[in-house]
Structure formats: structure tokens, C-alpha cells
Nucleic acid binder design. Structure first.
Lengths: 220, 220
DNA sequence: ATTATTTTTGACCGATTGGTAAAGATTACA
DNA sequence: TGTAATCTTTACCAATCGGTCAAAAATAAT
């Protein structure tokens, strides 16, 4: 049995190093071109190693991509998992939005890898979406619903609330090129994430309607 | 000069028909796999025609993609162009959100084509983003700013407001697979767009903070 | 120092890629 | 109907694709 196939055996220093280099290079390439648009040669060159050498560590292109997706899905849902039923509702949502925005800032490649996968029909993660993801979202949606019933949050569809948090935060990673093009050179610095954080807090907790024209009724 | 190269000459019925068939098939393929992930053979087969025949109408893969992008950019910005300074601010924003959501519903392929292009670094539309798009957004942001100064809207960063409208509405096209996976079979019908419309109206004009705990000060 | 193992390489494979050449089929028009 | 222009197809090309193989090189174990 070759080294790459032995999962139980402990790995060499060289194995660990090279696997990491390959995955890092593959993340660059896959997140930019999608699965079908990426080539093993590209990844190998980006990892500074020959193609057969790369294929010594990962037997197929699918294997590299699959490993990336697996590791991503673990980390990607952490912020939602952390949402705590016992915490203050407004603070919990606020914190979730902020954590997701930080992930868009700190892990844009992962966000794009995920976006590419979904955009292209999610053939390799459909089961995760319909299984673990749906369960997690349903569970948290139920918590949010209870918060709303308790008057701690204004009532709305919690599923679509979660969608809107995903959409607005990941937008800053996935559509980064557009965001920076529109903001212009002087507002495209790292500070754009602070501006985004401020705006999202405004959006989710205040809303556009000006004071004095609120659609909300005062509590009886 | 061949038919396909003659721009001034009027086109045959067959030309118009086949060009349309090709562009429609290409939209299917490109929006699902991105530029690099799509092949001319795929497009030709989807258009029900041989590859050389397709290449008789469009000389290269880039030519097809470019034509799609050009037509898309025209239509894509219409809703924003329609935002009217003279209209009621709340109604104008509300209408813009709704129009964008309708486009996500009615033209998901176009939305995904655009998303793929941005996601992959926008090599073919960077100039449009930094030029016409930025100008249009800046112009409308200025209008929104004036509305806010006049007390017609709560104050926030208008650029990020526009981003959030793009993000939340296009999400329902670009991440459709995920949306439907999470909502489950019985809530994934066409009605999900009505739910989304209701929710987005809530989000942008009311916000999560429950009545009685508003961060907004009452008007003096 | 020798052996066993792991790592790396160059040469190669069949399939697919974007695209071409040229001849044949069809159409429009006189 | 004749004919010129348009349209379509078959056969093909070089380049690149994902992946294999055997052997060399480097490393680890004895």
C-alpha cells in the first residue's frame, strides 16, 4: 500500500508539508476558476511541484477538491453553530453577522470555493446541503422563532433572515472585485469591511424607514 | 467577407434564428460552468448543431461569451437606472428591491452568468465595473444621500445599501440550489420568491429590533 | 554501509480541447 | 431555372486535458 492511501498510518513530515502546499495551491486555483475550469497542471505549478508528484499525494483532481470541500464545510458552519439559545437574541444575531463578515474578510478563497460549488449546481455537496446544513438551519430557525415569539425580536421568516445574513456577508468575499470597482480606489482599502459592519448593523437592526414614519406600532 | 463578420449587412432569417439558439444554449452552459469550465461542444450540442456550424456564427468561444455579457450588462442595470429622484424615496427603494428580486426569479441564468464572471475575477468586464457601473451607482448613491438628508430615509452608507440589495436579491438566483435544499421540498415552490419579497420588505424597512427597544430616537 | 522505503521525475497515454479546411447541401434571388 | 451566396458537414489539426508508468533520486531504517 502506498503512503498516500494509508489513512491509519502516521504521515511523514514531507507528506504533511506537501499535502498542505497542494491544498493551499488548489484553493487558489479552484476558488478562482471552479472545478471544471481548473487544471491539475495549474495547481501543480502553483504548488511548485510536478504533476506526477502532486498525483502521488492526491490520486485525482476530485480527491483534492473533495478534501478542500470537506475541510471547508466543517469551518464554514461554525458561526451558526455558535448561536446560543441562552444568549441575548439581538446580541446573538449581531455576533453571527459579525463572525460571518469576518470570515468573508479572512477567508475569501473559501467563500468563493463554496460559491463556485453552489453556482455550478452543487453536485459534490448536495447531500450536505439537504442533510446537515438543513438540519442546522432548521434548528437555529426554531430558536430564532422562539425569540420572536417572546418579543425579543421583530417577527419575520427566520429562514430568509439567515439567507440574508449569508448573502450580505459573503457578498464582500464573492463579489469583492465588483465591490472594490464600485467603491473606487480610495474607499477600497481594508476599511471597507468596517464600513460594511457598520452598515449591516444598521440594516438588520434599524432599517431604512425614517423615524416618525415607522410601520411598527408602539407596544400596547 | 463572411456573413458572421458583416455587421452592417442585414442578417438572414437563418442567421438570426441560429444566433439566438446559440446564445440561449451558451447561456445555459456558461451560467452553470463558467467560461473556462464550458466547452464549445457542450454549447453546440445544447443548441442542436455541429461544432463547426456553431463556429460559423461565432468565430471563437470568447465571441459567444462576450456577446452574452454585452447583452446582459445592458439589461442588468435597468432597474437601478429607473430609480427616480422625483419619486417617493421609500417607494423607489422598495420598487428597486422588488424589480431586482423579479430579475433573480425570471432571469436566473443571467444572474449566474454575471456571478460566475465576478467570482472569477471579472477579467472580461472589469472596465464596465470601474466605468459605467461605478458612475451609475455613484449617481444613484448621491440621490439616496439627498433623500436621507431630507429626512425621507434613515441615514446609512448608500453604496453599501445598494450592495446589500444586490446581495440579498441575487442570492435567490445564484444560490438557488442551497436555498431550495434548506427550505425543503414543500417550501421550495415558486412561492419562495413571495416569501423572499415579504421578508426583504421587512428587513429593509423595519429591521429586527423589536418595538419598544428601538435604537431610533423619536423625532424632536 | 547496506537495505528498504518514500519521494520525485520524465516520458508517455488516450481523450478532449478550441479551432480549421474544404467540399457538399441548401437557400435566396435573377 | 440557373447561379451565386449562404449554410452545413466531414475530416482533421495541434495543444491540452487527467492520469499512468517505470525508473531514478532522496530519505529513513538497520
Amino acid at each position: 500500500m502506498t503512503a498516500r492511501a494509508s489513512r491509519t498510518q502516521r504521515r511523514t513530515r514531507i507528506q504533511l508539508e506537501n499535502e498542505q502546499r497542494i491544498l493551499d495551491a488548489a484553493l487558489d486555483v479552484f476558488s478562482l476558476h471552479g472545478f471544471r475550469g481548473s487544471t491539475i497542471d495549474q495547481i501543480a505549478e502553483s504548488a511548485g511541484m510536478s504533476k506526477p508528484n502532486l498525483l502521488y499525494y492526491f490520486r485525482t483532481k476530485e480527491a483534492i477538491h473533495g478534501e478542500l470541500i470537506d475541510r471547508l464545510m466543517e469551518k464554514w458552519l461554525d458561526p451558526l453553530r455558535e448561536m446560543d439559545q441562552a444568549g441575548d437574541p439581538v446580541q446573538e444575531i449581531r455576533r453571527y453577522i459579525l463572525r460571518k463578515l469576518e470570515m468573508a474578510r479572512d477567508y475569501p478563497r473559501e467563500s468563493r470555493l463554496f460559491a463556485n460549488e453552489i453556482l455550478q449546481g452543487a453536485p459534490r455537496i448536495e447531500s450536505v446541503l439537504k442533510g446537515p446544513l438543513k438540519r442546522l438551519v432548521d434548528e437555529k430557525a426554531e430558536i430564532i422563532k422562539r425569540w420572536m415569539a417572546d418579543g425579543k425580536l421583530a417577527k419575520c421568516d427566520p429562514h430568509h433572515l439567515i439567507f440574508s445574513i449569508w448573502a450580505t456577508t459573503q457578498h464582500y468575499a464573492d463579489f469583492d472585485v465588483q465591490v472594490r470597482a464600485v467603491l473606487g480606489p480610495h474607499k477600497s482599502g481594508p476599511g471597507r469591511f468596517d464600513d460594511a459592519a457598520r452598515f449591516l448593523d444598521f440594516l438588520f437592526f434599524d432599517g431604512l424607514r425614517p423615524v416618525g414614519q415607522s410601520g411598527k406600532k408602539t407596544p400596547s
